[in-house]
Design a protein around this nucleic acid. Structure first.
Length: 793
RNA sequence: GAGCGUGUAGCUCAGUUGGUUAGAGCGUUACGUUGACAUCGUAGAGGUCAGAGGUUCGAAUCCUCUCACGCUCACCA
């Protein structure tokens, strides 16, 4: 028997097992295996998220519990890791960190900084995931900016181009004046703001009838029409006439539409090019004039006359002031309204007309809704969020960004005839600013203008299942990896990552990108606030790990229900640590009695206590397995906890002590039965816990079980199955439960009289409604130390 | 404004298709334990299951309304 450490030194041992797993390739995907594949479309984190916190740990652990379970279930698990390091999030991060913006730094220098930061970020993640024991195959990693991903992204563009699903259009589109790029509908957040509703006098006739109300007086120079409700008696005679815009003095038509709210403001509505999505719609529908007033940097154009060059807010102030001077500002009313802001920087989005690339999504909304229906959602309620979003879509997906750092569009334009030139698939990836088309243009010209825009970051991440599958060399295996089995992700990117992935997969391959979707929530601080850098309301995960260990932190993470936020709760982490300690102690105890076990020894005569606990073990296996199958690791943990702490340690171990410690030769057979049970009980318990607590379970497995069980790691061992031999009849179990109740009663008796549990009683009379069978007399006496049980004397 | 979700012990949450005195962990109180247990055990206190109404022999569970909170979406220029 080997010497067993009194305490489990998690710091030292967790490190040891991390290295062991890596060295032994425990999590490496086996391309040659015939086993059924379980593949995960792992969320590639933004490497720019420099401040990792418990929320990250929670969400990644959730998929990890499932993955480890599936691995033990015998699946050939494909668990790759990606890093999302291209696009605007990275650019914003670099701009902030170095206090620069894209207009003041050269393209290539900027890209260099992005790449450098990306590297640091990726390493941070990898270190933390390793410490946490996330069981990814690190030989299968990708970054969304690397050649592999660029190639696939550009291939996607080519394929969509061929299928006429992508086209370049000149349209008013959401624009961020700060980041100076076009945006997609999904890149917008809502922000409620206090503002003023300005009542402004227009010219054209009866003074009282020519007052409009607007929150955006700076757009006056872009006013192209006024609208009234056709039912509005006040304005009926004005329809078809013209009004004069104050200060700027151009004339605009007065039109009518039922959508105009008579109650709002004066009922006379100003339409500009373009203040909001409504303006864009009316502009298109009524073919209104175009007065482009805002430029790419969010400043007014020359059309604004003396206000040209001013930023929007400055222009608003000055125009208001001038209106006041001319007594054209009738009044101002406080108002609170919601505006669309860019989700990466919080700047209010404007509409600007530019040429951009769009993927057609509006004409296939119904198809995308149907695809969403076909996915298995965990939890199911999240399906609706997807549906709501798709139904509400108003714009095609703008995929071009006027930025530096991203996957380039594989497009050139002929200088002569303007034709779009695309490369051959075999030449991908290309950078049109560096590479040239291989052939002349049809018109004979050899002069090309490269497309300088880059792709939206989602253009690449919407291909992750494909990108990941192609990290494997064998074509036949690639086919099995795509679609993926599981997509784990957070709820706030349903409208982006999930939706766009569905779109791509549908257009490219006419199928779903994955079968199951598992949605996670956010990490909250201990007061229920969202964890954020600005609040500083989180602890560095590395400190938590040092204090409590990975297993303990993972234990906390199991508390999160799918799709729901979870508070950071240090006490739950402590509970995890106690579970680790308890497991260690229970196995030490177990194996202090198992040193001579001979598992091949012929027959074992199980006693009722053994039958009872093995029966319960079977139940636990069944319920825990069912829960894991439903991705309800949280419930699985509760079930396992209950068996381990309650049935196993509190009861069973106490029930068999008198047998184990007995030196009576007549007790040998009984002792042997207890030992036999102990062996399987402890083994099964650590297996059930293995997906959640990979370190301590590996420690116990390697120290005690490896010799007899033979697997290289507990994580490659077989998931426990129900043992039919242990499905004893209910009668036996129920009878025994009465004995358990009797024991509880004696314990209570002692506790109430402040006696130690070890104190031997001379005599005792059980007063339960249902007495245990007489055959349990000795068992009860021995377990709770009573000399005489009066009921049976 | 619409949709979804939540509201159960001081805290974090379980409560399966409606069925006996509503559960767990943490915290708290008392006692006992150092021969698996830098601990653990036993027990106690603590709940008008958000509120009101209804269905039912019976409701935390089903229905209606109200309130509070959260999320998602849409918004009026």
């Amino acid at each position: 028997m080997q010497a067993i450490a009194k305490n489990y030194n998690f710091q030292e041992r967790e490190k040891y097992w991390q290295e062991y797993w890596e060295k032994e390739n425990i999590y490496k995907f086996d391309e040659n295996s015939e086993k059924e594949i379980f593949s995960v479309d792992t969320p590639p984190p933004y490497v720019s998220a420099a401040h990792l916190h418990a929320g990250h740990i929670m969400s990644y652990s959730q998929a990890e519990f499932v993955v480890r379970y599936k691995r033990m279930q015998g699946f050939n698990v494909y668990y790759p890791m990606g890093f999302d390091d291209n696009g605007l999030p990275t650019e914003r991060y670099v701009e902030k960190k170095y206090n620069i913006d894209k207009s003041r730094v050269k393209r290539d220098e900027f890209i260099k900084l992005c790449l450098q930061e990306t590297k640091i970020g990726a390493q941070n993640y990898r270190d933390l995931w390793t410490a946490l024991g996330i069981s990814v195959d690190w030989t299968k990693t990708y970054s969304t900016i690397n050649e592999h991903s660029r190639k696939i992204s550009q291939w996607s563009f080519l394929d969509l181009y061929k299928k006429s699903k992508v086209q370049r259009k000149e349209e008013p589109i959401y624009w961020c004046p700060k980041c100076q790029t076009a945006l997609a509908q999904a890149d917008l957040d809502d922000k409620e703001e206090k503002s003023k509703l300005n009542y402004i006098q227009f010219g054209g006739g009866d003074k009282n009838k020519f007052v409009i109300a607007t929150t955006r007086p700076e757009l006056l120079p872009a006013c192209v029409a006024l609208f009234v409700n056709p039912e509005d008696k006040r304005y009926k005679e004005l329809i078809g006439k013209k009004a004069t815009v104050p200060i700027f003095n151009h004339q605009v038509p007065i039109l009518s539409e039922e959508s105009v709210d008579m109650e709002f403001g004066t009922g006379l509505m100003m339409v500009c090019t373009w203040g909001d999505a409504e303006d864009v719609r009316k502009w298109k529908e009524y073919k209104l004039d175009t007065r482009k007033i805002v430029n790419e940097a969010g400043k007014l154009t020359d059309l604004a006359g003396k206000y040209a060059g001013l930023e929007l807010m400055k222009a608003r102030e000055q125009i208001i002031a001038d209106l006041q001077k001319q007594k054209l500002l009738i009044k101002q009313v406080d108002i609170s309204h919601v505006m669309n802001t860019h989700d990466r920087c919080g700047t209010p989005a404007e509409f600007i007309i530019t040429k951009q690339w769009f993927i057609d999504i509006l004409s296939n909304k119904a198809k995308f809704l149907k695809q969403g229906e076909k996915l298995n959602w965990f939890p199911d309620s999240m399906k609706r969020r997807y549906g709501d979003w798709v139904e509400a879509l108003k714009w095609d997906w703008c995929i071009s960004r006027d930025r530096y750092y991203g996957v380039p569009f594989p497009v050139w334009y002929c200088k002569q005839c303007g034709r779009e030139m695309l490369p051959e698939e075999k030449d991908l990836p290309v950078d049109p600013t560096v590479d040239k088309p291989k052939e002349k243009c049809q018109c004979g010209s050899n002069d090309f203008i490269p497309e300088k825009q880059v792709m939206d970051t989602w253009m690449t991440s919407s291909l992750t299942p494909l990108i990941a599958s192609k990290l494997v060399n064998k074509k036949s295996v690639q086919m099995k990896l795509y679609p993926a089995t599981l997509r784990p992700q957070a709820f706030e990117i349903i409208r982006t990552w999930l939706f766009y992935t569905v779109v791509k997969s549908y257009y490219h391959h006419n199928q779903l990108p994955f079968e199951d979707v598992m949605i996670s929530g956010h990490g909250l601080d201990d007061k229920g606030r969202k964890i954020s850098k600005s609040l500083g309301n989180f602890k560095d995960p590395n400190i938590i790990l040092k204090q409590y260990g990975s297993d303990a932190l993972r234990y906390w993470a199991t508390g999160a229900k799918l799709g729901e936020n979870m508070r950071y709760n240090e006490q739950e982490i402590q509970k995890g640590k106690r579970t680790v300690t308890k497991l260690w102690n229970a196995s030490k105890f177990t194996w202090s009695h198992l040193s001579e076990i001979d598992l091949n020894k012929a027959k074992v005569n199980l006693e009722d206590a053994d039958k009872w606990v093995l029966f319960k073990l079977n139940q636990t296996i069944k319920e825990a397995t069912d829960s894991y199958e439903q991705y309800s690791y949280s419930k699985a943990r509760d079930i396992i906890d209950e068996f381990f702490w309650g049935d196993f340690t509190d009861n069973y171990l106490e029930f068999i002590k008198y047998r184990l410690y007995s030196e009576d030769p007549k007790m040998e057979e009984s002792k042997n039965a207890a030992r036999h049970s102990l062996y399987y009980l402890m083994l099964t318990i650590i297996k059930l816990y293995a997906p959640i607590l990979p370190f301590i379970t590996e420690e116990i497995y390697q120290m005690f079980y490896k010799k007899t069980e033979g697997d290289k790691s507990i994580h490659l061992s077989q998931w426990p199955e129900i043992n039919k031999k242990w499905n004893f009849d209910d009668k036996t179990i129920n009878e025994f439960e009465k004995a358990v109740a009797a024991i509880a009663e004696v314990r209570k008796y002692k506790s109430e009289r402040q006696l130690s549990m070890g104190k031997e009683l001379n005599e005792y009379r059980i007063v339960l409604k249902e007495l245990p069978d007489k055959k349990y007399k000795e068992f009860i006496k021995n377990t709770v130390r009573i000399k005489k049980l009066l009921n049976y004397e």
